[in-house]
Write a protein that binds this DNA or RNA. Structure first.
Lengths: 350, 350
DNA sequence: CTGAAAGCGCTTACAG
DNA sequence: CTGAAAGCGCTTACAG
């Protein structure tokens, strides 16, 4: 056969109508077992593979979900995408994936393009999106699930409490007795996750009557280089920070590497807290204190929520996944600094 | 409007036929500028978004490419997928992605599922695939591109010379004067990339009249833990290896971390060579010697090859991307071992 | 430059 | 349990 076999070819070979072949494929219970068997044989003999676009058009369901993430170049998103894909796949759904590299207008273009691909649902990361993006999604009537954060809109979401991430970090560092705190964050504009983490950090300091000076918060691109650059900036402050909260583990590891290059001992002279608990964070001595985010589970839950939504048409409830701090390689500030601070409390920088 | 607008709604609003709307959308040159403008307005006013499955069915092109990778949990594949997606997206194509976790029968299921999704082309990693996988792909008549390796079949491929990777590693370590060599590889069965790297390593040793004992080659799951376990096994050998080639950087870093835990100094007592040049490999002191694979470029080239194939119907030529060794933190073997070896050459283990 | 109409390959009430 | 037939929403020769 020069061209791919179609459902009519299968039907002819099995001696039934195309309707019956279609039912045998998508609703076998409605078909007599013997007929099913004949159809199965015909399919095998012809090597029939269904045409998905015809099926999608006729049935109104594409069995495809699209997800747009900031980047795949961060293990944390790659992992979530992996579990998302696996879970969808197990239920017969496929995943269309795209990355916008932290650019909201790129995200908007991707959303447009994906909506024209006939998808059953769309998954986005975070709650910050361009107004036109919200608009076109609503106009398309495609179910939207927000992940990684709680949606500020009415959309269902499966995410983390990003404020709490910052709060956990702050509580940990304060409990160690640190007086000079600082933050290396990703860019907060257009990134609610980064923003809320810093806000949460500040909240806890405020609860302790402290304020984080603007100079003690630097924003850098996510990545090792951003962490290194961030540390260099912060180490020019006087008094020097003895503890730094980083927006994610890549920044924190960058700080750690730069501290090693600069001869600053971690954790003796500097305590670092990251976020994500990347596999490598537990490998590198002295280890990195970090907030563990169950991102693999996030992908799975997101997939399940979407599948349930599509099956029942009921909007799934929003969820907030539990997070926890993993303590490795942080310590109290050097004694001399603590002493100095105690005698001159008016100089606390945080 | 309770339901999504269709092309007929746009046509009615613009006072033209659906054929003209269709042309304005996919072949604007064929439509009078004024008519185009009216159609554009109608689309904007209605918030029209095309139905992709209808378009795919009618036109025979889904504008979608599928890729199946071993895993997204390795930065090297995540990166390649990212550039693949970006390049496809810039040409109006979308990417369906799946991961098989180094399981050929899982891969086969994914191939089947994706072929039923009406895709224009399929991209796989490596040349080792189940016989039924080759069969169903050929039966489907969907263009197939092999990446990461040169295809052993007739399919076009864009990849690396995995033999050469092992050869580069072996030449480097031999040139440093190492006598006791070993290998930590991923599982070679069903993984031509891993297998060819080890083969290449062996080839160069053979050219120097040496042989790698079976005990000096251990296979471990890709990942830090695999590297750690591999090093533990190899350090029980006598004489101890002074240099290890690892199938990728995750294994090499695992070896490095384990060496640090065991108090083995790198590179003074142990030289490591990895493959991939992960970003982290240059950050961790003493740095990791590794083979740089241009994976970002691989994704881009793969996308370009597929796009060209789809546009022209000509099978693209296979390509082999250039690789290079990046030397960091490897050194000559300890002097005492060199001496010992020189006096008893019959004991060389490689 | 534009329109009428056939057709892409399925699914699904409807009737039996 | 099965079939005839309409229909999903586009595209594309064909004719003008």
């Amino acid at each position: 056969m020069a061209t791919r076999p179609r459902i009519v070819d299968v039907a002819a070979r099995a001696g039934v109508s195309t309707a019956t072949v279609s039912r045998a494929l998508s609703n076998p219970d409605l078909v007599h077992p013997e007929t099913q068997q004949r159809i199965r044989s015909a399919i095998a003999e012809l090597g029939y593979v269904m045409d998905g676009s015809a099926r999608a058009l006729a049935s109104g369901r594409a069995r495809t979900v699209a997800a747009i993430v900031p980047t795949l170049d961060n293990a944390i998103f790659a992992r979530a995408v992996q579990s998302l894909q696996t879970t969808l796949s197990n239920s017969g759904y496929q995943l269309l994936i795209a990355a916008h590299e932290y650019n909201l207008s790129a995200e908007h273009e991707l959303v447009r393009a994906l909506l024209e691909r006939s998808i059953d649902a769309l998954i986005l990361v975070g709650a910050d999106h361009a107004p036109q993006t919200w608009e076109v999604i609503r106009g398309s009537r495609v179910p939207l699930l927000i992940t990684w954060a709680r949606s500020s809109e009415h959309e269902p979401s499966i995410g983390f409490d990003n404020h709490e991430i910052g709060r956990l970090a702050a509580r940990h560092l304060l409990s160690l007795g640190h007086q000079h705190l600082a933050v290396v964050s990703g860019y907060c504009r257009h990134n609610d996750r980064a923003r809320h983490r810093v806000e949460g950090f500040r909240e806890v300091l405020a609860e302790h009557g402290r304020r984080l000076a603007d100079a003690n918060v630097v924003e850098q691109p996510f990545g090792f280089e951003g962490g290194r650059a961030g540390l260099q900036l912060l180490m020019q402050l006087r008094p020097r920070p003895t503890a730094i909260f980083c927006g994610n583990d890549m920044l924190a590891l960058g700080c750690l590497f730069e501290a090693q290059s600069m001869g600053i001992r971690v954790p003796e002279a500097l305590s670092l807290v990251g976020c994500d608990n990347l596999p490598v964070s537990s490998q590198i001595p002295p280890g990195l204190t970090t907030i563990l985010l169950p991102t693999y589970e996030l992908g799975q839950r997101a997939a399940e929520a979407v599948l349930h939504w599509l099956a029942t048409r009921e909007v799934p409830p929003s969820q907030c996944l539990p997070i926890e701090i993993v303590v490795r390689g942080t310590s109290a500030p050097p004694a001399d600094i603590q002493k100095e601070e105690t005698s001159r409390p008016q100089h606390v920088s945080a």
